[in-house]
Every structure is written in C-alpha cells, then in structure tokens.
Design a protein around this nucleic acid. Structure first.
Lengths: 216, 216
DNA sequence: TCGGACCTTTCTGTATACATAGGTCGGCCT
DNA sequence: AGGCCGACCTATGTATACAGAAAGGTCCGA
C-alpha cells in the first residue's frame, strides 16, 4: 500500500473520531514527521481530505479541520433525504429480497439487545453501515454511491454532536428494520417513506440533544 | 495562481471538451512537460481528476480518461433527478423572485433566437449554467452544491454523445423557462415538476439520439 | 502607550534526484 | 512454432532541497 493511502486513512480516521477535533491546524512538516513519511505523500492525503470537505485550506497556514455545526447538519440532511430516498427506491426495485430480509431480522435482534441493556453502540453502527452498503450495492449506481459516501463521511462526525441514548438507539433500530423490510418487499414508495421517517427522527433527535451552538 | 490549479483547469477543460477523449493515457512526465510544469503539481492535478471520476488510476500505467457510456448517463440522471428537484424546491422556497424572473425572460429570448436560426450553442449552455448557479446560490446548501458540481461535470461530457439539434435546444429553452418561472413564483412542487419534465426529456433525447453503444 | 512598518522565521509550493515496481521485448526451451 | 522466463527500461512513488510568500514579533516613532 502507498504511503499516501496510509496517511489519508489515518488522518481521516483521526478526524472522524474527533482525535483531531475541528479547528485543529494540520501543518505539513508536523504531520509528516508524526506519521513517519515525507511531505509529498502527506500533501496528497491532505488534498483528498480538502476535496472531501473534512479539512479546508487556510491559505498560507496549512489546512484546518473543518467545523461541525448544527446548521451544517441541517444542510446535510436536506441533501441526504432525497439521496437516501432515491437509493432506497432503486434498491427496492432492483435488490435481492433475501438479503434485506436477513438485515431486517438482524435489526430486530439488535433492538432486543438494546432493550435488554446490552447496548454495543459501535456494533450497532456497524450494522447500520451494512444496511447502507447493501442499499448501495442494490441501487447499483456509482454516482449515487459516491455522493452518499461524501455525505455519510460528514454524518459520522455529526453524530458526535449528540449523545446517543438507548431510547433513540432503540427507535433507530426499529426505523432501520422498517427500511430493510420495505426494500425486501420491493416497494419503492414504502421504502422512501421509511427513509423519510428515519431521517426526520434522526435529525430531530440531533437538533433536540444539542442545546446551543457547539461548533468548535 | 498555483501551477497545480492551472494544470487541473487545463486538463479538466481538455477532457470535458473531448480534446482528451476517453481512453487517453495521461502519463506524468509527458503531461508535465506538455504543460510546462514539474511532476509534483501535475500529480496533484491528476489526483483531483481521479477523485472527480474524470480519470481512473490504471495501476502502474498512469491515469486514463474514463469512458462515457449510455448506461453511465442513465445512472447519472437517476441521481440528478432527486438532487435537481431538491435544489429547485429549496430555491423556490428561499430564492429571490426578481433574479429568476430575469432568467425566465432570458430563456424566452434565447428560445426566440434559436427559432430564428441564430443558434449560439455555447452561449445557450452558458445561460443554462447561469440558471444552475442561481439555483445553487438560492438553495444555499454547500453539500448540495458540491454534489451537483460533480454530476454536472460528467453531464458536460455526456452532452457530446448526442448531437444537439435546434428542435431540442428550443424545447430545452422552454423547459428551463418553466423551471425559472416556477422558482420565481416560489412554488417548490411546481419547480420540482418542471425539473422532472426537463430531465426526463433531456435523458430521452440523449438516449434516442445515440443509436448504439458508442463508449470509447 | 499605541500604531505602523520592517524584519525574521517558518510555512507552503515547486523542482529535481533516486529507488522500486511493473511492463515490454527478446531469447531460449520445449 | 509457441510459450515461458529473464533482463532491461521506463514510469511511478517518495524524499529532499530550494525559493517565494505570508504571518507574527519587535522596534521605532508619534
């Protein structure tokens, strides 16, 4: 694997998991030495992060990790809604029934697990990512996948704005089960409706759980 | 301006205008010498093109200009439809009436110009780009703008698959006028409907005017 | 004491040099 | 004659050196 790929992955993970919080200045020489590589592959990694919108070029000073604001999250969901609906519609029309039936069952099991208190948040988000990946694969549209990938990247950071409580996680599992079931049934409009409900609730939860503007 | 920016803009324009047709191999040393710059800024430009999907990294051989196929165009429109509709809805809800009224009038004038035979295709596409830009500005959503920018880049190349005839251009001008008017009226659903009609006709024209699979 | 200008420092942007990997061409073996 | 192996060569990936520019600090003057 190339050094620039490793640097990109490492920096991206650090930003997504808030080890590099918003506002952090990423100087080239500093990061290059930290990652044990030269400036050339590091610059390529930074370029990719800037293109993704995770960092912004602060002219003459290097790149800084971009802020995550409530207003930005609202914008994000404004675009996510039509895209996720489109993806769900396509997946319902083209997808494999068995795969989404299986996912629906796993979300039901996850809901039961959450109710019983054995909340493994990380594993749950992994399951959500699996559903997203299954929908992407079923939709079979590279442009859609690329656009979704960009948005989901920012979503991961936005999640940290809100503290996930078990109640919301339980509701989320139910909503995801609804989506998977609708896709499994091959009903595009039902799938789009389920996605609309989920995103609406998800955004509302995010906005309600953040008291003030907490952008860094 | 940075040398990498110039290289990026130059290569991007060359690809979009088919001076570098699909399948062209872009070798680093060759392009660097052609553009009169070093390999370092050229590599940054190529990275951006790969991220945009205009070129693909052919491992060990450099990057090649990606193909444009009819199937790809269909995928493109599958994503454009929900995004452009969402943008039109937001613009109708938030936009400035006067600006879109003015654009509607200009599309009417453009239609008259096309009817009279004075077809300036380049100027017309410039006007379309102005409407797109106005909608983007009115929608005021950076995530939406970025996603649209990616798709429109590919659209520009796809246009070359079909030969634009004056009849289609005239119809297109009318459809764009409808969009601008709907946005000016502040009617989101009307605007989305107008966008749906335009994209549907646009895709149909593209598919009808390409007899066989002409991907390069 | 405050403001402005100059200087220094450090950063980015670019070029070039070097190593390695992959591709191609030719020869040899079957 | 066809296929396989090896060597050479070219192009990419990385490192480093250098120049230009911008930001911050400091010093001088009002």
């Amino acid at each position: 694997m190339r050094a620039s790929d490793r640097a990109y992955g490492s920096l991206r993970a650090d930003i997504l998991e808030w080890r590099l919080p918003p506002g952090t200045l990423l100087a080239e020489v500093e990061q290059a030495s930290r990652l044990g590589i030269s400036r050339t592959p590091l610059r390529e990694a930074l370029s990719r992060l800037v293109a993704e919108g995770l960092t912004a070029a602060h002219s003459g000073r290097g790149v800084v990790v971009t802020a995550v604001s409530l207003a930005g999250v609202a914008d994000l969901f404004e675009v996510r809604l039509p895209l996720e609906c489109a993806a769900a519609r396509l997946a319902a029309a083209r997808g494999d029934r068995a795969a989404f039936d299986a996912l629906a069952e796993r979300f039901e099991a996850a809901g039961a697990l959450i109710s019983s208190g054995g909340t493994d948040q990380h594993a749950y988000y992994g399951l959500v990512a699996e559903l997203d990946a299954a929908i992407d694969e079923a939709a079979a549209n590279p442009y859609l996948v690329q656009a979704q990938r960009q948005l989901r990247t920012h979503l991961v950071r936005a999640r940290r704005l809100a503290r996930d409580n078990p109640d919301r996680l339980l509701a989320s599992a139910g909503e995801h089960r609804q989506i998977a079931e609708a896709v499994a049934r091959g009903n595009p409009e039902l799938a789009a409706a389920a996605v609309t409900i989920h995103l609406s609730n998800s955004l509302h939860h995010l906005q309600a759980s953040v008291p003030g503007p907490l952008d860094a």
